[in-house]
Design a protein around this nucleic acid. Structure first.
Lengths: 220, 220
DNA sequence: CTTCAAAATATTGTATGCAATAGCCCAACG
DNA sequence: CGTTGGGCTATTGCATACAATATTTTGAAG
C-alpha cells in the first residue's frame, strides 16, 4: 500500500485553507495571519509555511514579501486570461481524448453527468461542482498527454474558485449541465471538431458567468 | 530598489542545480545525494530541500519517496507530450501577441535573432540558446495573457533541457535560426495565421531533433 | 538456499531558536 | 506641514534537533 494512512500536517493545512478559500469563507484579499492560524490549527510554522508556499505556486494565495500571506484576488483581466487559456488547453485535451474513448469511457462520462444532475436537482451544489470537476479531469486523463494533465491540474484550483462563483446562479448551472450533455453527445459520435467547439463554447459560457460577478470588483 | 543584493541560499542552490542539469553535467537519472551536496555547498537541509522541492514542481528533478532526489528522466513519450503541449501554448501566444506588436517590438525581435546568429557563428551555443529562449519568452510576454505567461514559464526549464540537446547538432541549430527568421517575417507582415503555422512547424522541428537523440534511451 | 522478521539505516515531517532584513510608526527637525 | 531618520515589530531565511516512517540489511530458522 502506498497511500499514507495519516495525512501530514502540511497536507491537512493545505486542504483546510483550500476548503476555506474555494467555499468563499475567506474572500479575496483576506490576510492570512500566520500566528492566529498556526495557533488555531495547533501546528508550527514549518508545515504551515510549506502549505502556504504550495498554495502560492498554485496561484490561490499571494505572498507580499515581508507583509504576509493574502488570499489571492483576481482582476477582471486575470479571470479573462485564465479562461482563455483554459479554453485552449481543454480543447486540446478534447482533441487528444476523443480518439481514445471506448464505449466504457462514454458510459463512465454518463454516470458522472447523471450524478451531477442529480446533485443539482437536490440543490447540492458542492457535489454538483465536484462532479463537474471530475468530468473535466477525466477528459484530461484520457488525452494521455502527461504534460497537459499536469498543467491543467495546476490550474484546477483557480478554476474551482470560478466554478463556485459561477454556480451561485442556478440558472447558469442548469445551462452548463445541458452544455456538458451536448459535449458528451459529440463524444458518442466521436465528432472531434464538434466536441472541441462545444467545449470552447461551454468554457466561454463559464467565463461569462464568472465575469458577470466581477462587475463591482477591482483587484490588485 | 527591490532586487535583493544578496541571493538567498535557496536561490543559489536552485541556480546551481539548474546549471548542472541543463548543462548536461548531471545526466538524467543521476541521484542527488543530499548529504554530499549540502556539505559541498556548505548549507543545511532546509534551503536545500526547499530548492529541490521547487525543482521537483518544475519537473526538473523527481523525488522518489524515501529514496531520495534524482535528476528527472524523460521517456520518449513524455518528450513528445511536452512538445505537443508547447506547440499548442506557443501558437496560442503567437495569435495573441501578433496584434500587439509595434514596429519597436519587431525591431527588438530583430536584435534578439541577430545576437543569436552572431553567437551561433562564433560557436557560442550557450548564448545562442539563451537568445532563443528570450525570443520565445518575449512572444509570451507580448501575448499579454498572464496565465499563459506563467504556464510557459513553468515549462521553460524542461524546454531548456531540450534546447541544449537539440542544439548539439549544429545543422539543426542553423535550420532553427532560419525558421525563427521566417516567423519574424510573418510578424512583420502581421500575418497571424502564417506566424502561428510557422511556430508550430518550428516547434515540431525541435521536437524531432530532441526525439532523434532518444533512439537509445528508455526512461522511468 | 530460501524465507521471513527484526534491527539498522536513511529519508521525511515537524518544532523551534536565532539572526537578518524590511516595513511601520512616530517623534524631532526643517 | 512635510520630511527624515531611528527604533520597534513582523516576516523571513537558515540551522538544527528530534520523532516518525519507509527502506535496506542482517541473520536466524526452516
Amino acid at each position: 500500500m502506498n497511500a499514507p494512512r495519516h495525512l501530514t500536517l502540511r497536507e491537512r493545512i493545505y486542504e483546510e485553507i483550500v476548503r476555506m478559500i474555494v467555499s468563499g469563507e475567506l474572500p479575496s484579499g483576506t490576510p492570512l495571519d500566520e500566528k492566529a492560524l498556526t495557533e488555531k490549527l495547533q501546528v508550527s510554522r514549518t508545515p504551515f509555511r510549506e502549505a502556504l508556499g504550495t498554495l502560492a505556486k498554485e496561484g490561490l494565495i499571494e505572498i507580499k514579501p515581508y507583509r504576509g500571506f493574502y488570499v489571492r484576488s483576481f482582476s477582471r483581466k486575470e479571470v479573462e486570461d485564465l479562461y482563455e487559456l483554459r479554453k485552449t488547453l481543454e480543447c486540446f485535451a478534447v482533441q487528444l481524448a476523443v480518439p481514445n474513448m471506448s464505449d466504457r469511457h462514454i458510459a463512465a462520462f454518463e454516470r458522472i453527468l447523471d450524478d451531477a444532475v442529480t446533485a443539482l436537482q437536490s440543490g447540492d451544489l458542492a457535489t454538483y461542482g465536484a462532479r463537474d470537476r471530475v468530468f473535466h479531469e477525466t477528459i484530461a486523463e484520457l488525452s494521455g498527454n502527461a504534460a497537459l494533465i499536469e498543467t491543467l491540474n495546476r490550474l484546477a484550483l483557480q478554476i474551482q474558485i470560478g466554478r463556485t462563483i459561477a454556480n451561485e446562479s442556478k440558472d447558469f448551472a442548469q445551462r452548463a449541465a445541458q452544455e456538458r450533455d451536448d459535449i458528451l453527445a459529440a463524444f458518442r459520435a466521436r465528432d472531434i471538431a464538434r466536441a472541441s467547439a462545444l467545449m470552447a463554447a461551454h468554457i466561454a459560457d463559464v467565463q461569462g458567468a464568472v465575469l458577470e460577478r466581477f462587475r463591482n470588483e477591482e483587484a490588485k
